[in-house]
Write a protein that binds this DNA or RNA. Structure first.
Lengths: 68, 68
DNA sequence: TCAAAATGGAAAGTACGCTTGACATTGCTT
DNA sequence: AAGCAATGTCAAGCGTACTTTCCATTTTGA
């Protein structure tokens, strides 16, 4: 799973810390997602999508043979 | 998180077991999702959506104040 | 240039998604 | 009514999402 989090966050001119606060998660969680250390839960993915006014699919990129 | 899994699966006339096999998860996982015992990982949500040719948002319903 | 702000990332702990295995219940079909 | 198919559900175990704490590195701005 790739994602466009860092790109979208920077477009909006907000800091990791600000995004984290808005989403009610830790700053490290945002950093970990941006750097691909792990994938978000589906709840967090929904919160992120809703925060940016986008769909989950526009932000998180699922590659067909992700884990086969 | 509510979801329309059971409804959509039955529309297509397929069994839990068949869906499980197609998605490469256990039958119990499908049952647990349909009965709301837990939410899917985002990877499984993507696989489900892709299998049904729908978006994640069309299948999984996120309620605003899900976890305060 | 130098300090503060922003980000990167490790470690240890908790919660949950998912597995296998087993058994109970419900729903056909005859 | 009986028997099999489909579904419900529990328990134990494993991996990972997320937390807090802490420290290192990079970026920014006066």
């Amino acid at each position: 799973m790739n994602n466009r989090l860092e790109e979208i966050r920077k477009q909006r001119g907000i800091k990791q810390e600000e995004l984290a606060t808005a989403l009610e998660v830790s700053r490290q969680t945002i950093g970990s997602l941006e750097n691909g250390r792990y994938n978000p839960s589906i709840l967090l993915a929904f919160k992120i999508a809703r925060f940016f006014g986008m769909s989950i699919e526009e932000i998180f990129i699922y590659e067909e043979d992700e884990n086969a």
